[in-house]
Simulated scan of single mutants.
Amino acid sequence: MGVIKSLFPSRGRVLPAPVEPGEVLAETEDLGIRLGGRDVLSGVRVAARAGEVLALVGPNGAGKSTLLAALAADLAADTGTVRLRGRPADDWPAAELALHRAVLPQSAQLSFPFPVEDVVRMGRAPWAGTPLEDEDDAAVAAALEATETAAFTSRPFSALSGGERARVSLARVLAQRTPLILLDEPTAALDLRHQELVLRVCRERAAAGDAVVVVLHDLGLAAAYADRVTVLHDGAVAAEGPPAEVFDEQLLSRVYRQPVEVLPHPRTGAVLVFPKRPA
Score class of each variant (00 low, 15 high):
residue 10 S to P: 04
residue 230 T to P: 04
residue 146 A to G: 07
residue 136 D to C: 11
residue 6 S to L: 14
residue 206 A to C: 11
residue 207 A to N: 04
residue 66 T to Y: 06
residue 213 V to R: 00
residue 24 V to D: 05
residue 75 L to R: 15
residue 142 A to K: 11
residue 148 E to F: 13
residue 34 R to V: 12
residue 29 E to S: 07
residue 9 P to E: 14
residue 205 R to N: 03
residue 151 A to W: 13
residue 63 G to M: 00
residue 211 A to F: 12
residue 149 T to P: 10
residue 104 L to Q: 04
residue 166 A to R: 11
residue 16 P to W: 01
residue 199 L to C: 09
residue 39 D to P: 00
residue 71 L to T: 00
residue 55 A to D: 12
residue 170 L to M: 15
residue 245 E to I: 01
residue 188 A to D: 07
residue 270 A to R: 13
residue 11 R to K: 14
residue 157 F to A: 08
residue 248 D to L: 15
residue 235 G to M: 01
residue 103 V to P: 03
residue 228 R to Y: 04
residue 271 V to N: 09
residue 203 R to G: 00
residue 67 L to C: 13
residue 188 A to F: 07
residue 40 V to K: 00
residue 158 S to C: 10
residue 94 A to W: 10
residue 216 L to F: 04
residue 13 R to N: 12
residue 248 D to M: 15
residue 63 G to E: 00
residue 273 V to H: 12
residue 21 P to F: 10
residue 260 V to Y: 10
residue 107 S to C: 02
residue 1 M to L: 10
residue 217 H to A: 05
residue 121 R to V: 03
residue 258 Q to M: 09
residue 203 R to H: 08
residue 265 H to Q: 12
residue 214 V to D: 06
residue 54 L to F: 11
residue 241 G to I: 05
residue 156 P to D: 03
residue 213 V to S: 01
residue 35 L to M: 07
residue 66 T to V: 08
residue 162 G to R: 08
residue 243 P to K: 10
residue 183 L to K: 06
residue 122 M to W: 11
residue 265 H to I: 14
residue 31 L to D: 13
residue 36 G to Y: 04
residue 225 Y to C: 01
residue 152 F to C: 05
residue 216 L to W: 13
residue 200 R to I: 02
residue 136 D to Q: 06
residue 183 L to D: 03
residue 217 H to E: 13
residue 90 D to Y: 09
residue 193 R to D: 11
residue 123 G to H: 01
residue 46 V to A: 01
residue 16 P to G: 08
residue 30 D to P: 00
residue 228 R to G: 10
residue 209 G to F: 04
residue 238 A to M: 00
residue 173 V to E: 13
residue 87 R to N: 03
residue 228 R to Q: 07
residue 177 R to N: 05
residue 266 P to A: 11
residue 77 A to S: 11
residue 81 T to C: 07
residue 185 E to P: 08
residue 160 L to S: 03
residue 203 R to F: 01
residue 198 V to I: 13
residue 108 A to I: 15
residue 66 T to D: 00
residue 47 A to P: 02
residue 149 T to N: 15
residue 39 D to G: 05
residue 42 S to A: 03
residue 166 A to E: 08
residue 172 R to I: 08
residue 222 A to H: 04
residue 160 L to G: 07
residue 11 R to H: 13
residue 84 L to H: 01
residue 149 T to V: 14
residue 141 A to K: 02
residue 108 A to P: 06
residue 270 A to I: 06
residue 132 L to G: 13
residue 118 D to L: 12
